[in-house]
Design a protein around this nucleic acid. Structure first.
Lengths: 192, 192
DNA sequence: GCCAGAATGTTAGTCGCTAACATTCTGCGT
DNA sequence: ACGCAGAATGTTAGCGACTAACATTCTGGC
């Protein structure tokens, strides 16, 4: 909880309204069945305005400000390890340190993505930036570009699969960090 | 070369025309800049007809009749191995056996996909069937569903990354099978 | 309370894609 | 060669995501 909440600017308020009503409608009637016009109307705004806040419908669900932490964690892994193992262990230690409070919102979003085939592709594309960041890090440390791309893509795919499994768990008991760690364990099978 | 080429039915001819002109236009002016109407016109046909042959624009590039071979190869891997390793080695042995003659067309297609960000997502979604098939196989052999999904997604991501690297190689000398094998080696780092 | 600039609305249009129905053409048997 | 069933294609109309150019209203600091 922040100390003081100075009256949110109008921009912040409409953004929040779009996010809230968007998530709500997606959950109630499905992503494909929900129209941008509907979301806008629910938020007391025009379709046009929606696109001033999000470049596309899917961006209401896909945001990703996590990159810097990840690459830092990868950099800390010993360079003697193969790129694939470095990436996997780096991601694992990064997510272990992540704060859990944001988990509920993330869960709502991931749930919708996991259940909408068309969005799974979009999610994958949206990991493009993260992938680039990881590749950069690995190459800077001596890996071949091709190998780095393979390692990054593969590790990210495992991470996303782990996210889906966590979001789909009805009980909702497990922590996000544990789910991620488990997913990366499936992949990092070398014990040396 | 087949022994005799009985006059291709009209359906086959328009299909071929759409594929040919589609690929051509995509290569010359880019995927996003190419309109379905353009492709149809070039093939001497209507936009409507295009959609009778392909459910969506992207399907002109994405076809995948490979699943049965893959799962069979995975089934042959020893069940004592972790799911991830089984999947990786199964895929490797499957692609080793694949005929190389189709490579040139595949290369054209993958090249376009690799260079069109929006299509990378579509490609990923189109691997959904293959993923399901692999998961089924792994689960049937005793893996947990969550673990199987992680393993399948991760291995497929590596394979696709390998495909991109191969298609982007300007020299065009390396064989498809070699590229795939190399990609899977990056991921299967356990030597035991 | 005023006013610059932010925020929003309007209109019009493109592209991907679908549906319902009409029309033409192909390739088979005779 | 001929005719006909059914395949193949065309037409029209429309929805939803998204963009562009321009007009309008409203906000928030002074």
């Amino acid at each position: 909880m922040t100390i003081d909440t100075p009256r949110p600017t109008k921009r912040e308020r409409t953004l929040a309204a779009l996010l809230e009503h968007g998530l709500d409608l997606f959950e109630r009637q499905g992503y494909d069945q929900t129209t941008v016009a509907q979301i806008a109307r629910a938020a007391g705004v025009t379709e046009m305005t929606f696109f001033r806040y999000f470049p596309a419908k899917e961006h209401l669900l896909l945001d990703d400000p996590y990159d810097p932490v990840l690459t830092a964690a990868i950099a800390e892994q010993p360079r003697t390890l193969p790129p694939f193992v470095r990436a996997a262990r780096g991601l694992r230690s990064a997510w272990r340190a992540l704060p859990e409070p944001e988990a509920p919102v993330i869960r709502r979003r991931v749930r919708i993505v996991a259940r909408t085939p068309g969005l799974r592709g979009a999610m994958w594309r949206s990991t493009g930036n993260t992938e680039r960041a990881i590749v950069e890090r690995l190459v800077a440390d001596g890996a071949s570009p091709d190998d780095a791309r393979v390692a990054a893509a593969s590790v990210l795919a495992a991470l996303v699969a782990g996210l889906y499994a966590w979001a789909d768990d009805e009980s909702g008991t497990g922590t996000l960090a544990a789910a991620i760690e488990h997913a990366l364990d499936v992949i990092d099978v070398c014990h040396d």
